[in-house]
């Protein structure tokens, strides 16, 4: 829902990183997007394609997205399971004493720079 804001955030961060590293042109940007981060990949791509044209630093940059599957840990039976399929209830033992191990992240992993 807030993908446009997220993309402006990303581009602002890239501008800071570019300045710190004396980079004037970025060739590619890799984002890691967790399965339950609330970020819709297709919308990120649309917003990116719209916004990159307005930003000289990234106007030719390729956007790469690395999805991160959501995994939950059950503290009762000490096993992991797929979050999206089973939610908060462990499919192995039925416990609700569970927490998300990974899948909520949204991060700029790396950039390729000239």
């Amino acid at each position: 829902m807030h993908e446009l804001g997220v993309v402006t955030h990303v581009i602002r961060t890239l501008e800071e990183v570019a300045q710190e590293n004396d980079v004037t042109k970025i060739g590619s940007v890799t984002l890691t997007v967790g399965e339950v981060s609330g970020i819709v990949t297709e919308q990120i791509i649309d917003c990116w394609n719209w916004f990159k044209k307005k930003t000289p630093l990234v106007c030719e940059a390729e956007l790469k997205i690395e999805p991160v599957p959501a995994v939950t840990w059950c503290t009762a039976c000490e096993q992991t399971y797929e979050t999206v399929k089973y939610g908060k209830t462990c499919p192995h033992c039925g416990s609700k004493e569970t927490y998300l191990l990974q899948g909520s992240e949204f991060a700029i992993k790396e950039i390729e720079a000239e």
């Binding site: 961060t13 790396e110 950039i111 000239e114």
Partner: peptide, 18 residues
């Protein structure tokens, strides 16, 4: 892409907001 160097960024959106 040979002309490009890779820079490790690892900035999460949350960290930026934080």
């Amino acid at each position: 892409m040979a002309a490009f160097e890779t820079i490790d960024v690892r900035v999460g959106l949350e960290e930026e907001n934080e």
